[in-house]
């Protein structure tokens, strides 16, 4: 039984060292609450993607723990997390309708109807083969797949990086109109201006450590500036 009073993700003394020496995540402690949109903010190489991969079970921590609903990453956690990686990962030989059927088959919370509605809105033909589509369209399909689930936690790694402003608006609109408000969204980006308006909380990451975790409004009030402006101040080169 899931205890909804507890945070959805608990990270305890998490460390990841690559190749025996490169410290990517350093003794990190973090809690991700339920029903919130949280910005995971940090410059390139700060450890955002490494942290996200460990939550998703794609990387094994060097030490420490990641708990999702109180359990380590595994089939149970993967059933409640909807993850959008920062890269296109769909098999190129598949058709759009096949990948939708694939998701529907494996994820009980996947809505085929919602997926087809979004495809129709974007005028993406379901019969199109993925290898014939542009990178931007493939990214949109990935977002459709992720947001067609009724997950408890959505993890979106750089969802607006590398897309044009119009597509950014569409992506943010899709996220906001499709997520269940009981769920949490962990949104990693360094393009803060575009997403600041939708964030409930922000986590600043530097050198693999969470240096700040606070409500977005509290940051604005405490520092008298936007989260974006404060981010620039904190991470000034």
């Amino acid at each position: 039984m899931i205890d909804i009073s507890k945070p959805i993700v608990e990270i305890q003394n998490l460390t990841k060292i690559y190749d025996g020496s490169k410290l990517a995540v350093n003794q990190m402690n973090l809690m991700i609450p339920r029903g919130r949109i949280i910005g995971l903010l940090g410059p390139n190489g700060s450890g955002k993607t490494t942290l996200i991969k460990m939550i998703n079970g794609l990387l094994v921590p060097t030490s420490g723990k990641v708990l999702i609903n109180g359990v380590a990453p595994g089939p149970a956690s993967k059933a409640v997390i909807s993850y959008l990686p920062e890269r296109t990962y769909l098999p190129p030989g598949m058709k759009v309708k096949d990948i939708i059927a694939f998701f529907a088959q494996f994820y009980e919370d996947f809505s085929i109807e919602r997926a087809y509605n979004m495809l129709q809105m974007l005028a993406i033909p379901p019969t199109a083969q993925l290898k014939t589509l542009s990178k931007g369209t493939k990214e949109k399909i990935q977002l459709i797949l992720v947001m067609s689930r009724q997950a408890q936690l959505y993890i979106l790694d750089e969802p607006i990086a590398g897309v044009d402003p119009a597509a950014r608006d569409y992506i943010l609109h899709t996220i906001m109109t499709n997520y269940d408000h009981q769920s949490s969204i962990l949104l990693s980006t360094h393009l803060i201006t575009d997403i600041e308006g939708i964030l409930d909380e922000v986590i600043f990451i530097r050198y693999g450590q969470a240096i700040m975790h606070a409500p977005a409004e509290a940051v604005r009030r405490a520092h008298g500036k936007s989260v974006d402006a404060y981010f620039r101040e904190v991470f000034a080169c």
């Binding site: 079970g57 794609l58 089939p75 997390i81 990962y89 994820y107």
Partner: peptide
């Protein structure tokens, strides 16, 4: 490869 992101995030053992 990148397809691993799809396969290893499936709720399967």
């Amino acid at each position: 490869t990148d397809e691993g992101y799809l396969m290893f995030t499936l709720p399967v053992k």
